[in-house]
Amino acid sequence: MMNQLERSLLDRYQRGLPISATPWADMAQELGVSEQEVLSTLQKLREQKFITRVGPVFDHHRAGSSTLVALAVPPERLEEIADFINQFDAVNHNYAREHEFNLWFVVTASDQAQLQSVLDTIECATGMPMLNLPMEHAYHIDLGFKLAWQE
């Protein structure tokens, strides 16, 4: 169970961490606690894996070309095909999902030509129906995420 300070830090600081010489002290002042309390609480949240990190979230869409790809593979071959796909450095996320299109992965490359070449290789080698679904527009405002605290 989380204490009030832990919750406040998570609620308030999913964005807008101050860029200052002493960011934790600034946050401490805003929350009415000490700098050391902020620091040790963040350290504890990170150690307990309630947060993955404290820092900048970079926009990786700005780095080259990327796309979301879906494959419809026979369930008995999912493992084998996933292993094949995961070998590509260009593949950075790969999820099994409950659907006819049951393998969903993100491919990122330095440019469109390189991206297409990875997709062609995967399509050719697997021979499976493939959807290439590049992002056309992002609407997520990325304000962070509302956490519903369960008592």
Binding site: L10, Q14, R15, L45, G55, P56, V57, D59, G144, Q150
Partner: peptide
């Protein structure tokens, strides 16, 4: 530099990044 990267969108936000799975 951090401020500039945030202003031009290379940094989306600076955050305590929650682990949603762990948070329920």
């Amino acid at each position: 530099r951090i401020q500039r990267m945030q202003d031009n969108g290379v940094i989306r936000r600076i955050a305590a990044v929650p682990n949603h799975y762990k948070l329920g």
